[in-house]
Amino acid sequence: MNKEVSIIHFPGSNCDRDLAVAIKYCLKLKPKFLWHNESHIKDPGIIFIPGGFSFGDYLRAGILATKSPAIKEVIRHAKKGVPIIGICNGFQILTECKLLEGALIKNSSQLFSCKKVFLRIENKKNYFTKNIKKGVVQYPIAHSQGKFYVDDYNLKKLQDNDQIMFKYSSKTGDISDKYNPNGSVQNIAGIVNKKKNVLGLMPHPERAIDSFSGRDGIVFFNGLNELI
């Protein structure tokens, strides 16, 4: 693996700096920024796709970004097994370009929602989460189109293949509608692809890396150490 972390950013990305700060703080390395029109990405290391409103989120959140040259490269690398992490808008982009199952649609409340939520880690067999000791972590969410939708057939496939990674829960890990901030199917907050090298999640671990905002994000990034 390369000693490299890349952040792909688009016009309208706005969590790119926050992500870079978190990566620098936790992984002690400076991420490489790749602009959306990058048509040849060599040795990217881990690829991050940050939150924000790529291309204004016009048409549907994430869709316009999927047509950029950099995402074609992301797809190529994904097939080769490169670890890819999409957060918030990054998750939306990964579902729109079909690297991940399902779709992210308007929250049930129809409103943007910004708050801290608890997430139960559903699966620790995967390299994205196996080093996280806690069973439940607390990250902020900030989105209006974060309701994860998938039909029953594909939901079963996600379950059978252990692709569900995070679910919205209580502090103690209870899963119920009460703890579902956006109406996601089965409280799903994050999933991986079948090959388990592409992760998408709506909550923001990069917003939980200091004593003021909570420190649960640190374990998320530190856990990636062996991948780089």
């Binding site: 048409l59 549907r60 869709i63 047509k67 579902t95 729109e96 399902g102 779709a103 649609i105 939708y149 998938v150 039909d151």
Partner: peptide, 8 residues
Amino acid sequence: ELLSNPVI
């Protein structure tokens, strides 16, 4: 490919 999302 663009205007609609076949999932939904």
